[in-house]
Amino acid sequence: MSDFILETAGLSKEFKGFAAVSGVDLKVRRGHIHALIGPNGAGKTTVFNLLTKFLPPTTGTIHFEGQDITTEAPAATARRGLIRSFQISATFPGLTVLENVRIGLQRKLGTGFHFWRSEKSLDALNGKAMELLESVDLGRFADTITGEMPYGRKRALEIATTLALEPTMMLLDEPTQGMGHEDIERVVALIRKVSEGRTILMVEHNLSVVANLCDRITVLTRGSVLAEGSYEEVSRDPRVLEAYVGSADINDAHH
C-alpha cells in the first residue's frame, strides 16, 4: 500500500481552449488533512470536480488507493470511498435533520430513495443516524427542520450526511465559508475529529483555518501548482505571497 491514497499526474482541464487546470501533480498522503489554497480562479473547484469525476480531465491521470480511476463513473468512484461533502443545498431543507442523515444511510445501503418503504424499516436506521448526529454535536437538533437550522450547524449536518456514506477520503469544499468566528472554531474541531482514521482534502480560503488544521498544503494559481509544503513553508514562500497579495504579507491578506 502506497503512503499516498490519492495521486494525480499531469491533470489538466481545458474549456474551449482556456486551461482551468494545467499539469497538476497532486499527492495526498493517507491520513493527512491536505488543503488546496490559492486566489480566486486558481482552479481549486475544477480540481475537485475532476477528482470526483463530475468533469472528465482533458489530459492526465487520477489514481485512488493505487487504482486508475481517471475514466471511471462518478458513482463508482464514490463507492470506493472518495466522497465529496456537498453544501446543504444538496440535502432536503423541508425534512428534519435526522431524516437527512437517514437518507445518507439509505444511499449507503443501496436502498435508494425508497420513501414509500414502511416506517419500520427506516426506524432501524434511526439508531445509526442518531449516532452520527451525536458525533457532530447535533443530537439535540434531530427533530429540527433542516431549513431552520443556523448556518454553521448546517455545515455540521453536511459533514454528518457525508459520514453516513462511510468515506475513506472526504473532499470538503470551503467548509468554513461565510461563518463567524464561533462557528469556524466548532467546524474546525469537527473536521479534526472526523479526520481520525480517514484522509481529508479541503479547499479553504481562511488561512488561519488552514494553519491550524492542515498537515500539508498545495497552493494553486492559474490552474497550476505554485508551491507545496507545510503551512510554515508555503506562508514564507515569496511566490505564494506574490500570488495572493502582490507582495504584502500573506498573514495580513486575510485579516
Rank of each mutant, 00 (worst) to 15 (best):
M1G: 15
E7K: 15
A9F: 11
K13Y: 13
G17D: 07
A20E: 06
V21G: 02
V21D: 04
G23C: 03
V28R: 03
V28W: 03
R29G: 00
A35V: 07
L36K: 10
I37W: 12
P39V: 12
G41A: 12
K44N: 07
L50N: 07
T52Q: 04
K53L: 05
P57T: 10
T58I: 10
T59M: 02
G60T: 04
F64L: 04
T70Y: 04
E72F: 05
E72D: 07
P74G: 01
P74Q: 02
A75Y: 12
A78W: 03
G81A: 03
R84H: 01
S85N: 04
T96I: 08
V97F: 11
V97G: 10
V97I: 13
T111A: 04
S118M: 00
E119T: 04
K120D: 03
N126M: 02
L133E: 02
V136F: 04
V136P: 03
A142W: 10
D143I: 04
D143A: 14
E148K: 05
M149E: 01
R153S: 12
R153N: 14
K154C: 13
A156R: 15
A156S: 15
A156D: 11
L157Y: 14
T161V: 15
E166P: 06
E166F: 06
E166S: 14
T168E: 14
M169C: 12
L171R: 07
L172Q: 09
D173H: 11
P175W: 14
Q177V: 12
E182I: 13
E182P: 00
D183H: 10
V187M: 08
V187T: 12
V188L: 10
R192L: 05
K193W: 01
V194E: 02
G197M: 07
E204M: 06
H205C: 09
N206G: 00
V209N: 07
V210T: 13
A211P: 00
A211N: 11
G223I: 03
V225K: 15
A227Q: 06
V234R: 13
V234W: 13
V234S: 13
V234M: 15
S235W: 14
R236W: 09
L241E: 11
Y244M: 07
Y244W: 08
Y244Q: 07
Y244I: 06
V245E: 02
V245W: 11
G246C: 14
G246D: 11
A248F: 13
D249C: 13
I250M: 15
D252P: 00
